[in-house]
Structures are given as C-alpha cells and as structure tokens.
Amino acid sequence: MDVVDLFCGAGGLSAGFDQAGYDVVGGVDFEGAFAATFEHNHDAEFVEADLSEVTGTGVLDRLGYDPGDVDGVIGGPPCQGFSLAGAKTDPADERNFLVTNFIKSVYEMEPDWFVMENVPRITTMEDGKVLEYILSQFDKIGYRTGWSVLNAADYGVPQNRKRAFFIGHKAGEKVAFPEATFRNSTEQQTLSADRRPPRTVRDAFGDLPSLDPGEQKTAYASDPDGEYQREMRRNGPELTNHRAPNHGDTVVERIEKAAPGEKIPYDSWSQKRRLADGEPAPTLLAGPRPTYHFAHPSDDRGLSVRERARLQSFPDDYLFKGPIAKQRQMTGNAVPPLLSRAVAREISAQIAPAT
C-alpha cells in the first residue's frame, strides 16, 4: 500500500511502515533540516512544505499523484497550544492549525485510511472536548475513527513512551489496535501470560562501546547479545552517530553524583537523570540544544545520538544527518519504529489495499 507521511520529521513513523512492507512514497515537513535524514533512509521524496499554506492536493501533485491514489496518510502533527476556541473561530490559528491541517489534508488527499499520532494529553484537553471535536471532524470528512493510547514499551521498545493513535477508515468497521506483547517494567503484573519481559537500557546499549565525554567510536564493543541487539544490527551496519556530548568538568562531576535511576543534582533541570540498566528508559525528550537529558548508566556523560536511536528502536543502519542539535531533536521527537510497525501490521491485517 502506498503511504504519504505528513509532519514526517526524521521518519520514525515511516520506518515502521517500511518494515511492515508498505511503500512510503513521500514525507512532508516544514523543517528542511530533516530532508537529508529522511531521504537517506527512505526511498521516498521529501517535500518541504507548510501545510497551513500548501493543500493536500498540492502535496500529491508534487509527488506525482492524484487524490485517491495513495492508500494511506500517516503523520504526527504537533498539538502545542491546541485550543477548541481557536479551532472553531479560526482554523489557521497558529495554536491549532497543525492538527486541523492534518484533517484538512486527509480530506483533500482522499486516502482509504489514515493514522494520526499525537501526545496522550490531546485525548483529555478541555475535559475531553478536544478529542470529541477531532473525532467529529474526521467523521464529517467520511472516516470512521478509533483511538487508543499506546505505550512503546509494550511493543518491544526499550523506553516507556506513551502516544495517542487515531486510525480512520473510509469504509467498513473501525480498525482494531495491536495487542501489547511485552511488559513495560520488571514489576508490571499482567493478565496475559504471553507478555514478554520488558526490553531494557541494557538490551539497548550492551554492545555499544563505552565513551568519554566528546569521544567518538565507530566499532562495536562486542557481537550482538540478545534479540534486540541482533534486530538493531540485522543489516550488518558500521557503527555511526556514536559520539558523546563534550561535557566540561562541572557537568561530569554532577553526573558522577547520581546513581543509576536517580535524578542528576540540578536546581532547574528536574528531568535530567541517570538511566538504570535493568528497566526501559523514561520518555526520551527532544531538546533544542546539543545538551543532554539522560546520562549513561555507567559512563559519566550524556547519551550519543546512536544510543538515543537505540532507545527509540531505530536500527543501526538508520543514519542521522545534520547538526547534532537537529539529530537530537529528530531522535527525541520520533515515533519509535517498532511501535509504528505494530500499528502498520494491524492495519494490513484488517484493510485490503485499495484497487
């Protein structure tokens, strides 16, 4: 099935659909700095466009398609500041145009189905009225839509990362969401005996070499150990994007004071903590600067881009390009490919390609 990815960023959502056998034919984002990473890792065209100014039909035209030609539209429009009042009075309001323009683009592109990903709070904003509004808009343009909040750790990602997913289908029943296959912590009790133990930071980092601040290495520390490391290295890549942030002595001393799993002693950085080997990581953040949010479990430093990518389930042959701050932004904002793949497989199991 042919798919277009709106608000594609580095292409995490696209990567999961690629892995599930879909043909991602294009990615759209207003941030041109993402183009090199997206096009290097996908056999697809990157369209630099602001969807408040370019129509869905305009995007299709640039990709060589007509409305109704692509089977699916996927994307994760940011919802910062989304306001129902703004949505009702001015759909182009900068606080909410990204979500409303995703809906508008779906209407104009006429796919058989769509997937929209977002932060979980979009389902509870304004006491649930924003969710009601979004579902009503998808209904108005002809899509029967279901939603669910999914945790990436439940699908084999070594990170607790909850995201809201909306799946809309133009014809037929609502599409079911994938069942969880992993536990999301070593302490979690589940009703299903089939849920596997969680993948952990140790699973993600075990074969990557130790680094000092500012150091870069291009050789693995060992052969892959375990299913997750083998999956990340399945195409036999060289090690890339593995450079540590170049911390000064003061930062290193702060990190040294934190035991694994503890917060790093900052007065104004409450989210900075040292990762614990034996559990999935907390939700990875983007960050506008080449700084760090999480410290390595044993090295006194922040994470390399490759370590961030491992926590997100990007395979090691997925190369991140551009300035380091942009690479951190791309890895922090992305949909984990293994989570995306689980959703994509569920869709293909329930929806036949359009003919």
Rank of each mutant, 00 (worst) to 15 (best):
G248L: 03
D203K: 01
S270Q: 13
N235K: 15
S222W: 13
E253T: 04
D225Y: 13
P260H: 10
F205E: 01
A219M: 13
T250S: 15
K257A: 14
P245M: 02
Y266V: 06
S222P: 09
A259Q: 15
E227M: 08
N235F: 14
R199I: 05
A204I: 01
D212S: 14
I255V: 11
P224M: 01
E253K: 14
W269V: 10
D249C: 05
D203G: 06
H247G: 01
K257W: 07
L211I: 05
D267T: 15
A204F: 04
S222H: 12
H242D: 03
R230I: 06
R274E: 01
K257R: 12
R199G: 03
P237H: 04
P245F: 01
V251W: 06
T218K: 12
R230S: 09
G248A: 03
N241F: 05
Y220I: 01
L239Y: 06
S270F: 10
P260A: 14
E262C: 06
P265T: 07
D212H: 13
T250F: 12
Y228D: 04
D249W: 05
L208Y: 03
R234I: 07
D223F: 13
R199S: 04
I264R: 00
D225S: 14
P224N: 06
G206I: 12
N241D: 10
R199W: 03
R233H: 02
E227V: 11
